[in-house]
């Protein structure tokens, strides 16, 4: 499934990277610990988190993540946005909880383990 389809189906907000919506996503990861994401998130996956500070962009680059989704209405900090534009990282957003979003994605066929 492409990012665009996911954004439309789940009514996600696009904070950064509106031009990179055709990427295909197969797997998801939910975590708020950078070390965990670096160690365990699937390459090219969709990362669900509460973390909105700049370091998330570095991690997304490192793991070639398709996108970061900030949950519970959290918005990226300014320098996070700037870094995201520079590094061409997609940042999405939703008011849903991480649990609900992971569950919906799971329903759409995005794999976890």
């Amino acid at each position: 499934m492409t990012l665009r389809e996911i954004v439309e189906k789940l009514d996600l907000q696009v904070h950064a990277g509106a031009g990179r919506m055709e990427v295909t996503v197969a797997r998801g990861y939910m975590s708020d610990m950078l070390s965990d994401v670096i160690g365990n998130a699937p390459i090219g996956g969709l990362w669900i988190t509460m973390q909105k500070h700049k370091n998330v962009v570095a991690v997304a680059v490192m793991k070639s993540l398709a996108a970061i989704v900030l949950v519970q209405g959290r918005v990226p900090e300014e320098d996070t946005l700037r870094a995201a534009e520079e590094e061409e990282v997609v940042i999405l957003g939703t008011t849903m909880s991480a649990f609900a979003l992971a569950a919906r994605l799971h329903d759409l066929g995005i794999a976890g383990d």
Binding site: D32, M33, L34, S35, Q51, K52, H53, N55, R74, V75
Partner: peptide, 14 residues
């Protein structure tokens, strides 16, 4: 809400 000056090790602790 959402403002944090916490360093990375604090985030790793939840």
């Amino acid at each position: 809400p959402g403002y944090s000056g916490a360093p990375e090790w604090v985030r790793e602790m939840g």
